[in-house]
Design a binder for these strands. Structure first.
Length: 472
RNA sequence: CGCGGGGUAGAGCAGCCUGGUAGCUCGUUUGGCUCAUAACCAAAAGGUCGUUGGUUCAAAUCCAACCCCCGCAACCA
């Protein structure tokens, strides 16, 4: 039995859970369930990122204390995750006292690679933030919201010397020692890495009142990176317990493509600075588009995962987002596509297959004397190990369709009519056995359904009272 | 000359790395079956593989140039 550690990205708490988070959780969940079925012992981390001035501002706006605000937000995410059927073993909030202490310890262990420097950039006093050069040019030097020209401002920050580790990281990525998936992201990251500047990791206290103080410097507060990325370690008790030795390096870290660069550059640099190994795999998944466009509150095309789940059930949601939303690329969600997949594939192919088989078994008194021994075949494993979840589905579905075809070919209803009992039993029990094998392969993806199918065919076979996926 | 992805049947995609009769799903049409959720099975129609050149006996696949689309902090740490 191997120990495997799987992580999800920790969402920033100034917003509510959305479909992008759901992708991350579901993918990690499939990975965990698969490892478990393979006999591994798995820890799954989840958590929330709760510091930063945006959070502070939002709470102030709402007229509640920051702590109250983040508590409420974190609560939403905890609920959200459980509704997705995802079972984490460890949950970390960046405002946990333990996390904060551990992060300070981590900072201190990194001091050899940290230096103080002055940041100079364009600043909008209305927005109270620095803006990029690109933004400056686009807006012709004045803030469109506040109609005020940007000002040059200097501020002291601590910097983390990424350059100390660039070559090591590049080698790890090139050699796949730290595997970056998909392949085209790996190329992209290698390019980005080459001209990655050192990264600013603190802000003056006046700028950032809600954060972890920099140890030994009252005037500075940690800015996102060290605080948030460390969560993958602090949740394992690093550095003050030895638990992490059994679990680190992570077997798989799931991140959205938008934050891959931080996980593939800053994060490995931190790990190397701490003398720790790099994660085995970083998986970057795509985003869900609504009819070809980015989902956005402004446009009003946001799809709420809970709406889908309420209407069609959890497994239908997981099914669509794991199969028809490409694991690595951006994909489109429309209700039409969703309903097509639901009706054609879940209801007609799989649901109806279970129904017709169970009904024939019940009618003819078929029972399996003993359940077949189940295992994953080589092709399945290869794809699963490459995190090609959408492709795995295609593979499994061929088997579902083949079973439907076999029923048509072998015509068990004819055998029954002709009184060929022995042949009939052999035919039906063979079909059930193979269905259970297919069912086994679906377990990491649609666990609610696979449990139901197991139940239907264990012992006395009865068709389900309600169809698994009622047509809508 | 920023970086990356993409342009293949009405729609969504695979194939390209490792050249050799262009494939899958949905939709459409027709036929079969009747165990089943009006489900299932089969067959057919439908493509000059973005454009132009090149390499080759042979190019969707390799090379060059060009055109077009989409991302590059998911709400903005």
């Amino acid at each position: 039995m191997t120990k495997k550690y799987v992580t999800t990205a920790i969402p920033y708490m100034n917003g509510n859970p959305h479909i992008g988070h759901a992708m991350d959780y579901c993918l990690a969940d499939v990975c965990v369930r698969y490892y478990n079925l393979c006999g591994d012992e798995v820890r799954l981390q989840a958590g929330t990122d709760e510091h930063g001035s945006k959070i502070w501002q939002k709470a102030t706006q709402l007229g509640v204390s920051v702590q109250e605000f983040v508590d409420a937000q974190a609560g939403k995410f905890v609920d959200f995750i459980s509704q997705l059927g995802v079972n984490y073993t460890d949950f970390v909030r960046t405002t946990d006292t333990k996390h904060e202490k551990r992060v300070q310890e981590i900072w201190q262990r990194l001091t050899n690679h940290i230096y103080m420097d002055t940041y100079e950039g364009w600043y909008c006093t209305g927005c109270e933030r620095f803006i990029t050069d690109k933004e400056y040019e686009e807006n012709n030097g004045a803030c469109p919201d506040h109609l005020k020209p940007y000002e040059k401002l200097k501020e002291k920050n601590y910097y983390f010397r990424i350059s100390d580790f660039k070559e090591q990281i590049a080698r790890a990525i090139e050699s796949d020692k730290m595997l970056v998936l998909p392949e085209f992201r790996k190329k992209e990251i290698l390019r980005l890495l080459a001209d990655s500047p050192d990264v600013s990791i603190s802000r003056p206290k006046e700028q950032l009142e809600w954060g972890i103080p920099v140890p030994g410097d009252e005037s500075q507060v940690m800015y996102v990176w060290v605080d948030a990325l460390s969560n993958y370690l602090t949740v394992l008790g690093y550095p003050d317990t030895d638990d992490y030795r059994e679990w680190w390096p992570a077997a798989a870290q799931f991140v959205g493509k938008d934050i891959l660069r931080f996980h593939a550059i800053i994060w490995p640099a931190m790990l190397l600075g701490l003398g720790l190994e790099l994660p085995k795999v970083l998986i970057s998944h795509g985003m869900v588009l609504a009819d070809g466009q980015k989902m956005s509150k402004t446009i009003g095309n946001v799809v709420d995962p809970m709406e889908v789940i309420e209407k069609y059930g959890l497994d239908a949601f997981r099914y669509y987002f794991l199969r028809h939303v490409d694991t690595f690329n951006d994909s489109d969600f429309t209700w039409e596509k969703f309903e097509n997949a639901y009706n054609n594939e879940l209801a007609n192919d799989l649901g109806n297959l279970v129904q017709r088989l169970a009904a024939m078994c019940a009618k003819n008194g078929i029972e399996l004397s003993k359940l077949p021994e189940l295992d994953f075949d080589a092709e399945y494993r290869v794809l699963m190990d490459k995190f090609e979840y959408a492709k795995v589905f295609d593979c499994v579905w061929e088997k579902v369709q083949a079973l439907n075809k076999r029923i048509d070919d072998e015509k068990p209803w004819m055998l029954a009519k002709n009184g060929e009992t022995e042949k009939l039993h052999k035919c039906l029990s063979g079909l059930v056995r193979d269905l259970l094998q297919v069912n086994y392969e679906l377990k990491p993806f649609i666990p609610v359904t696979t449990d139901k199918i197991d139940e239907i065919f264990a012992g006395k076979i009865e068709p389900p009272e309600k169809p698994l996926f009622p047509k809508q």
